[in-house]
Design a protein around this nucleic acid. Sequence first.
RNA 1: GCCGCCGUGGCGGAAUGGUAGACGCCACGGACUUAAAAUCCGUUGAGGGGCAACCCUCGUGGGGGUUCGAGUCCCCCCGGCGGCACCA
Length: 877
Amino acid sequence: MVRGPQTTMSDDRKPYPFRDFEPKWQARWDSEKTFRTAGPGDEGFDPAKPKYYVLDMFPYPSGAGLHVGHPEGYTATDIIGRYKRMNGFNVLHPMGYDSFGLPAEQYAIKTGQHPAVTTAANIENFRRQLKSLGFAYDWDREIATTDPDYVRWTQWIFLLLYSSYFDAESNRARPVAELEAKGWTRDQIDAERLAYVADTPVWWSPDLGTVLANEEIEEWKSKGHTVERRPLRQWMLRITKYAQRLIDELDGLDWPEGIKLLQKNWIGRSEGATVEFQVSSVQSSAKGDDSPAENSHKVEVFTTRPDTLFGATYMVLAPEHPLVAKITTPAQQAAVEAYRKTCASKSDLERGDLNKDKSGVFTGAHAINPVNGAEIPVWIADYVMMGYGTGAIMAVPAHDERDFEFAQKFGLPVIQVLAGKNAGETPALPYCDPGIAINSGFLDGLATADAKAKMIDWLETNGKGKRRIQFKLRDWLFSRQRYWGEPFPIVWKDGHHRAIADSELPLLAPPLEDYKPSGTPDPLLNKATEWVQLPDGSIRETNTMPQWAGSCWYYLRYCDPSNKDRFISKEAEQYWSGKGASTGMVDLYVGGTEHAVLHLLYARFWHKVLFDLGHVGTPEPFQKLVNQGLILGEDGQKMSKSRGNVVNPDDVVREYGADALRLYEMFMGPLEQVKPWQMKGVEGVSRFLARVWRIAFEEASDGSHQVSAKIKDTECTDKELLRIVHETIKKTGEDIEKLSFNTAISQMMICTNAFTQAEVVPLKEFIQFLTVLNPFAPHLTEEIHERVAAITGRRSSLLSETSWPTYDPAALVRNEIEIVVQVNGKLRERLTVARDADEEMVKSLALQSPKVLEHTDGKTIRKIIFVPGKLLNIVAA
RNA sequence: GCCGCCGUGGCGGAAUGGUAGACGCCACGGACUUAAAAUCCGUUGAGGGGCAACCCUCGUGGGGGUUCGAGUCCCCCCGGCGGCACCA
């Protein structure tokens, strides 16, 4: 007997032939454009259909390809999208690529290959991988942020920001043309634009050859890059004007509270007051003679605790504060200069973790406390930062930990002006909680909140200060010196910038010979000398935009991806925004937490500007946000190349099929939760799918699959089976709505087990089950459906184009139910009774039960609690 | 340090204040097979008792509380993960 070939065959045999039918269905969906979405203006568009916009965070197409974290969120949205489609919604479920980015440029540095080439190859690989998972995307809407057609509108939106200002009165953006009409000068207008140029100290990375936004520093440092502080002329976006709205308008959003809080903390609103101090010092005479001259300046500080003003015992300026040079006395000159130098050269690391020790130097100057006339010394110290508040503080060591530490170190006086909340309490210093004011003149006896209010009134009445709301959020550093990003559509002449004409968009960067950073903060595009120099003597802006630019508005472009005249048509924008039922355009947005404060804040900001200027109809982009949890390696550690615990989706698809991968990722646990990968779990769901396959087919001796003889096109007479099927229809639908995919799958497994055990598998109910499973395992269910439905001789449509089945409430009802009997809350007996058994009935049965009597024996029954259909609790003592 | 999230079998996890451990994995037993794989049928929280059907006790990080009844609600503590971190 020759057994060799057979053995080989069985080694290769899979529990069901997914390798045959998965690619087949993918090809069919592709060629038939099964999941094409018709929007306004498209053929077949039905404006009466309700819309549902479900969005994934689009990937950066790295050379490494998809990892298993991508399909987690993508499968979740795919299930929702397919489910909503079956429920009559016009579903927009698009995919694209966030394709500007550093790796392609780094590769260009090494090889000289244009980043566009690398990017195109990576996108192709991502597309292949995404298609191999059977996602129901409308591929006609695919976009990449590097597409010239897309870059055009990114630049167009930038110019919109450039040509707008924030009107404080109406609390929204308006065109700068209004200011021109009012006769404002060019410089005045430039100082108000939402996109503006400023010389600011920025973080510059020599090895990346670019500056970075505050928000990005950590990420790049953790990847081993260095950053240093440099004053540079940069493009900024005036996001701070939106700080209050970015906080307030979170309220209407259906986002996880944790993410909302993260954004609120990032924006960092503080209420307090500015206080004006008179600072004077003795300077050498400007005339060069020996007579010393007294000079005097006003210094403003910001404080959240104006109620402690009587306790201010010194003042601290940031080392970079412009007044430092003017007020330092000759005697302190050398020390101050030396200290400022150290601060300027301090690396980020030294300022942060390693050096929390307070340091500082006395300037020799003194300030007058406006509330009591006390003369206090003025110091400089790097624990006060130029970028926040006014860059100066009043120090109240008795009631601020940092000030206390500083005062201890330098022997500065401490004056307590706050007692504890309760009379007679003497709290240890520093005491920072609310309390009762003491040693504070007109504030004495007031609780902190009242004292604050009274002090602010006093300051405002006496012209010594003002109420002030301060945010931690800084304006967004928007320019980079790299190559692979959108060039700014700006030219310079005679030191002034201006926008290029819309007709010149997109403005694309020319290819370079050499993509290596210069080692200086000069933009890489400066190397393209011919491109930079314009015939009329203007020169091009050579900075490029950060990667965030493209991802700030991609969800809008999906709605109208090939529009040549606008970034999105009015009609598409209105339709996909919905009928004003919610404040956000996208109904569901799924992605990782890593974007909680960057992408999600930037995109909200751009959207609000577009809203203010009438280009979109909702104030927010994303109505509901869900954060998928990280998938860890089998070892419970974060997946990483160096740990060798990375799971490649391609391998899983090859071994178990796309449906099994999809099912497994949804079955692992709650979507939001962090959870470890288990290949055994993939086998488990693969077995489940194989069971579904075997309900439908019997394997003939030649290895072919015949529709099972158990499947019959008859009415379902098995009441219990019918009940389970309808329960499954109900629960799966409800669970999908709740994004509780793991429990939905568990119910479908129960249903599968019931079918497996049934003598007869009624065709109608089996197809209902396949329909419910279809959003999860689209390939398998289409394949089974096509072949099984054929036994009726009727032509069947695609399962994914049918409607979600409705369950029959009558089928859910059981005739007999189990009632649990407890004595004093402990389970003692189970009674099987008629569905509608009343309390009296159950009570009498329970009180006859020997098991119950055993526990009530010799006790008095005090109370009986009856929960209909569920439980009876006898309280006895 | 501050803020947020989370602690349930050997593992992933399930439980509108109402039967803790659904479903799956692992493990074990049985059927089929010359054998194995696959498949099908069972058992499977811990401890104890019974020939047995079964029964008892304990059990959701720890301690207290509210309640007829707590994994679920409240207070305190412990442990893990994530974010922010001199923001005045």
